[in-house]
Design a protein around this nucleic acid. Sequence first.
DNA 1: GATGAATGAGAATTCATTCAT
DNA 2: AATGAATGAATTCTCATTCAT
Lengths: 202, 202, 202, 202
Amino acid sequence: MTAVARSRIQKARRQIILQAALEVFSRQGFRGATLDEIALESGLSKPNLLYYFDSKEAIHAQLLTDLLDTWLAPLRAVNPAGDPVAEICAYVRRKLEMACEYPRESRLFANEILQGAPRIEGFIKGDLRALVDEKARVIGGWAAAGRIAPVDPYHLIFSIWATTQHYADFDAQMRMIQGPGIVPSDGAEAYLVRLFTRMLEP
Amino acid sequence: MTAVARSRIQKARRQIILQAALEVFSRQGFRGATLDEIALESGLSKPNLLYYFDSKEAIHAQLLTDLLDTWLAPLRAVNPAGDPVAEICAYVRRKLEMACEYPRESRLFANEILQGAPRIEGFIKGDLRALVDEKARVIGGWAAAGRIAPVDPYHLIFSIWATTQHYADFDAQMRMIQGPGIVPSDGAEAYLVRLFTRMLEP
Amino acid sequence: MTAVARSRIQKARRQIILQAALEVFSRQGFRGATLDEIALESGLSKPNLLYYFDSKEAIHAQLLTDLLDTWLAPLRAVNPAGDPVAEICAYVRRKLEMACEYPRESRLFANEILQGAPRIEGFIKGDLRALVDEKARVIGGWAAAGRIAPVDPYHLIFSIWATTQHYADFDAQMRMIQGPGIVPSDGAEAYLVRLFTRMLEP
Amino acid sequence: MTAVARSRIQKARRQIILQAALEVFSRQGFRGATLDEIALESGLSKPNLLYYFDSKEAIHAQLLTDLLDTWLAPLRAVNPAGDPVAEICAYVRRKLEMACEYPRESRLFANEILQGAPRIEGFIKGDLRALVDEKARVIGGWAAAGRIAPVDPYHLIFSIWATTQHYADFDAQMRMIQGPGIVPSDGAEAYLVRLFTRMLEP
DNA sequence: GATGAATGAGAATTCATTCAT
DNA sequence: AATGAATGAATTCTCATTCAT
């Protein structure tokens, strides 16, 4: 079986495995997760998992690769030529939407960082850092030009990550505090947009 | 060995073990951590760990117990009779200080929540929820009285947690992005105080 | 692996394991036995044992369950409508035959009793006690009717158990005393039948 | 500390340890017993046990040595010059008395035999066998002389051992069957004397 | 493709024994 | 004489991975 020639059914099976693995890895971290759980979750047998992927590590690596490809998109879309506050608020919205739509991916990422990011160090120090630096310069430029209130662009970006991802990563805590019947992220967009708008208005 | 009568050396050894375990559990989570690592980190032999604690689980439980005792303090100190904005900013400062001084404890907690909080469900649904509800009423009262800008108290509290704990939990990522020589939390207090002050000023 | 659907090979392997475990448990008792010995005896690897059984305890429990099912049969077959002395002598013969054919099972049972019967308390106080009480009434009836010599039925039953099981449980001692070439149970049936016949003849 | 010069207090401590060890070994067998249990039972610390005895093995060996010294006495006392039936019945009484007074010693011995008698093989093939052979000749002589009914002396001796020791070794089972309030050995002497008297009367 | 069977490496825990005091 | 502390060697059990079919 080569990497290129995969039948449709193979691709489908791989997706099923990845979804199951995402569920488990995002909760337990890499070492805490077991192939047994992933097999159970996916409805496939354990050896069958390893027919589609070389190893536990390979499943995890695939999940991270797939994730990182899209992880940068919201920030990348920040347009230097747009309206500063609107651009940043739009970024907040996209980031929150991603957290709400892909909470498991967010937790997978959070797990990696908590562990010291051993498997995505390259990504962070490479693509992510470059992108953040680039956008930090844009935001810094806006601040210097008086188009937004003066602000440290890095702290701003970090606080956007923190507040949006929180709705995915700490979802369990929020649900327990607010009780059943309340979706934690209800009202989150309005709140966060307001938070960052008030922060940035010149 | 009873729980009450412990010699000085026992207390000291238990502390050494707990510190080592905190390091490991906060990175790997409960299941991902191994006694081997804790033994290595603490400089004690693996059986010796189990001479001081009944089991891996017991070490972890002790860490959580010790943590939860102090986890509520910053929020509890919010004074309904104080100046609203000043009180909340003071809370932000205390919370940030705690994250910066006890980052491993913060990560230990984050790991638990990521896993769905199986071991601290009681704490969250009990003491934590009660305290949050109480303080949310206070903040809601301030907003209703026009002493702070109208705001959902729960989203406010969650965003304070998110932004402050981020400096502990996502420290690895921030360091990689900012490069060596920069401490991520430098300027964090000023930034966060400003963020929430602008948010709350009537 | 469900309890119901087991392939032929699984059943066969389980039997191999149970035979090996019987050998070891019957000699060493539950705690004194090790999976290493059972693995060696069965020719399987240690983890493979645990592929077929959930735990050391589960293997032991299976052995006891299988044993208890048949342990009652000889006594149960005592017919209240038969000739008293003949019935009891037939019981002695069946019990002796069982001890000689299944000495390891007998030793497994003896080991449990020696330890205070922690794992078969329910069986003894339940099914076994009920059966003994029932047959004791039968024997008591025979004695009252003058069809056998007056005798305490419980002591009678216990002495039948003692003398027959002795040929299994204390086999090692008997062989060492009688030396090689002599099978301890040779002549046992004649002796025991005579012993109990003389005891019971009115 | 030499073997000869032991203070009174040392002897007392050794006795305490031996009593505790007897309790544990007689239930669990050599391998199934732990020094922790013996320490708990004796009220001494685990290292202190090993101050008085070289090893777990040494404690066990001492128990066996002490036991074997007295194990032969009842049979040895059978007097070739006495009245055959009376002599044998007296032997039964002594053996039963020993089982009832020293049930733990009996179970210790039973455990050894069940395991194949690895530690007392020498005793059995030596002193015990010689004594049994000697007394078997006496009994055989009585039978040949028509002073008792014809009987295989070995089966006779074994059945005396079986029935008397049963009241010690299988005590747990008998209690569970007869229920609380009944002492299994009540009436045992009368029953057994009757059993063997009827067997042996010419 | 799929899976029952099997296993070596490792993980938590127990235990007899030693050491230092 | 006694014990708290410590540990190497098991012992039970888990787990990622391989093998045979």
